[in-house]
């Protein structure tokens, strides 16, 4: 286990210097589809933070207490994706029963999340990097926040841009990707902020 790596370093690196969306391109599909409006982005972002943190906890437990002891590590993809899908389904059902308001704001985004590569990506990175439980929680939380920051910023820019003139071939996906590229450049400027000892 990597005791030498501090949880706060992982947390901030996941948000800024190594944003899972802007450096690993994970979660691009929903990013491109949903980032048209700030309010929907906030909703989806909230759901992603919650699911990402919770599933990294669940998957960490499943990996270290079930898969490793029984030498089933090679089945981790199936186990992770099933845990994520089941968890999302469960949360959707619970929210639907408890609060209509919450369901309206968060619930509609949940089905989108199972297929969000970033969720599975966080779980896979976490076991490949051999994180401790505590580090995994903060890695999941940080990645979720990082993803949300990126999508909200993008939605803000795209809302402004609705009134500007974009070269014809670039409208839609093209210009979004260019903005994402510039954002990735900007986020790279954060490197140096975190000192890992």
């Amino acid at each position: 286990m990597s005791e030498g790596i501090a949880f706060y370093a992982i947390f901030f690196a996941a948000i800024f210097t190594n944003n899972i969306l802007l450096t690993n391109y994970l979660g691009m599909c929903s990013f491109l589809a949903v980032s048209r409006e700030v309010s929907t982005s906030e909703g989806l972002g909230g759901a992603v933070i919650f699911v990402m943190t919770a599933t990294s906890v669940l998957n960490w437990l499943a990996y270290h207490y079930i898969l490793v002891p029984f030498d089933l590590v090679y089945l981790r993809y199936i186990v992770f994706i099933v845990i994520i899908a089941a968890f999302v389904q469960l949360v959707e059902m619970v929210i639907e029963r408890i609060s209509d308001k919450l369901y309206a704001s968060l619930g509609i985004f949940l089905p989108l999340i199972t297929v969000n590569c970033a969720i599975l990506g966080v779980s896979l990175f976490m076991v490949i990097r051999n994180y401790t439980f505590f580090n995994s929680v903060f890695y999941g939380l940080g990645s979720g926040i990082g993803w949300t920051v990126a999508i909200i910023a993008m939605a803000g820019i795209r809302q402004k841009m609705a009134r500007s003139r974009v070269p014809k071939g670039l409208t839609g996906a093209g210009i979004t990707l260019i903005i994402a590229g510039i954002m990735a450049l900007a986020f790279m400027g954060f490197s140096g902020m975190i000192k890992i000892t």
Binding site: S2, G4, I5, A13, N18, R129, N130, Y131, I196
Partner: peptide, 8 residues
Amino acid sequence: IGAGLWGE
């Protein structure tokens, strides 16, 4: 083994 940015 040393601590890198992301892991060991």
